[in-house]
Design a binder for these strands. Sequence first.
DNA 1: CGCTTTCGCTACGGGTCGTAGCGTAACTGT
DNA 2: ACAGTTACGCTACGACCCGTAGCGAAAGCG
Lengths: 213, 213
Amino acid sequence: MQSRTPAPRATGRPRSAAADAAILAATRAALVELGWSRLTLSDVAFRAGVAKTTLYRRWAGKNELVVDAVAELFDELELPDRGSLAADVEGVVLQFAAILDRPEARSGLMGAVAEAARDDVLRERIRASIVERQKRLVVEGRARAQERGELPYEEDPRTAARTVDLIFDLVAGAVVHRALVSSEPVDADWAVSLTQVLLLGIAGAAQNPAGSV
Amino acid sequence: MQSRTPAPRATGRPRSAAADAAILAATRAALVELGWSRLTLSDVAFRAGVAKTTLYRRWAGKNELVVDAVAELFDELELPDRGSLAADVEGVVLQFAAILDRPEARSGLMGAVAEAARDDVLRERIRASIVERQKRLVVEGRARAQERGELPYEEDPRTAARTVDLIFDLVAGAVVHRALVSSEPVDADWAVSLTQVLLLGIAGAAQNPAGSV
DNA sequence: CGCTTTCGCTACGGGTCGTAGCGTAACTGT
DNA sequence: ACAGTTACGCTACGACCCGTAGCGAAAGCG
């Protein structure tokens, strides 16, 4: 979320926090109207009502700016206790899908990931500000399921971390792939089917025909 | 794979098939060296040894060109019979990961998906030439597992198609997300863990500690 | 009230875009 | 063999955006 200022100096004129918010909002608006490739920093600066040079003082370039602008979208993800692991998974899947339905998330997220293929610093920035922000939901839901007795406890913290990572990539990856690559809708039915496979496995899900409507 | 020529005319000078191959190869080379954003059509034309105008005669723009260039990468995916559903899944996951390890696939695929957020035609092109090309592997592996008795047959073709789509998005999405978003390695251990969750579900995989090494 | 940093503004060279125009090359049908 | 048709290579063009530099003014701190 932080622009890239290493340390806020104690002296001199402070940076306008309002400008930061305006710039990030303008970036999202530009993503909606123009998409990734046509988005220009000149345009963002105009929309935000700041000078173009101010933008370059805070962000190294388009990639970093968009990552920060998109990362904020995932702040609205929550995980209310819906009573069961299955219900929790279905809920978060639909929430996540709603975010990915917004054009600023689609083009911004994928554009940033594309650029990260050749930029180690950007890749780490994505991992820190987007991936970690979402992964907390898995940790939370998992702990809750363990309290309910729906999932076993894992003693070794390394094994536990690996499980969390796996579940996260499975769920988030499936939703992203379905919505953005396969271009098919993530609706309630699909969320139910996904959850069944996740909890029971492929064969188990086929026996229980709840996903077939 | 086809450029965009609606119908090959019977008269006049035919288009050079060699030029097509050279252009697509040059596109991949440019993706490796420059990435998505710095790739220019002028550069691709120079690498391929053709005039820039030739490029614009065959493809509408960068997006379409890259989709075609990247789609060819997935032709090398195969599904040899490894004896069990689990082994088949693990094998294809590692194959898929090997492709996604190549920089031309990383930046090209994600860049195209990013642009597809605001381009219906491009989205359909991705679906047709990349998604469908991969989905055949799921259909094949599934049929094989049904013959082995590892998976139940589904009579309703609509239900069956939905299952295939779900499994495809789960596996492909998980691999893509792990490799490109989470930026963590897709190795044999992870492939085993993924397969276990897919076949047995989360709880079932935790009981069988094969993925913990 | 000096010191420091940010901000808005203007201007600049450099690069890419996508297209137009022309002469030439390649292939087809009569 | 010849006319018809299409693809190709080449050059040139205006338009746009990039990222930076330089300036005076504004906003905090001691």
